[in-house]
Simulated scan of single mutants.
Amino acid sequence: MKKLFLLAAFIIGATFYNQAEAQTISDNALGLRFGGGDGVGAEISYQRAVGSNNNRLELDLGWRDNSDYDAFKLTGIYQWVWNIEGGFNWYAGAGAGLLGVDDTRFNDRDGDDGTYLFLAGNVGIEYDFDIPLLISLDVRPEFGFFSDNDVLNEFSPDIALGIRYQF
Rank of each mutant, 00 (worst) to 15 (best):
F16A: 08
Y116R: 02
A120S: 14
D138M: 06
V101L: 13
F16C: 04
G111R: 04
S45A: 14
D112R: 07
N153L: 01
A8F: 15
R105N: 04
A20R: 08
L133M: 14
E85Y: 07
R109Y: 14
Y165S: 11
D158L: 01
Q79D: 10
G41R: 03
F129R: 11
A92T: 14
D113P: 05
D130E: 11
F155V: 07
W80D: 12
A29P: 06
N149W: 01
L99Y: 09
R164L: 13
G111A: 02
D113T: 03
F145P: 00
N53T: 09
R109H: 11
K2G: 15
D102S: 09
T115N: 07
L74Y: 07
G87R: 06
L152H: 07
F88W: 10
G62R: 02
A9P: 01
D150Y: 09
F88H: 09
A29W: 06
K2Y: 14
Q23P: 09
D150W: 00
D113R: 04
E142M: 10
N18W: 04
G86V: 01
W63F: 13
A42N: 12
L4V: 10
E58G: 05
K3M: 05
G97W: 11
V40F: 11
S26D: 15
S136R: 12
N89C: 01
L152A: 01
D102G: 01
D113C: 08
Y46W: 13
E58A: 11
S136I: 00
E154W: 15
I44G: 09
D108V: 07
Q19N: 05
P157T: 03
R140H: 08
Y78P: 06
N55I: 02
G162H: 05
V123P: 10
A120R: 02
D102K: 05
D68A: 15
V151T: 08
F118K: 15
R140D: 07
G31D: 13
R164D: 04
I159R: 14
F72C: 08
F155H: 10
L61I: 09
A71P: 00
L7A: 13
Y46A: 13
F167D: 04
L7V: 11
F118E: 12
S147P: 00
D27I: 08
F34L: 15
F10Q: 14
V139H: 03
G41S: 08
L57G: 15
G37C: 01
E21V: 00
Q23H: 10
D130W: 10
Y17S: 09
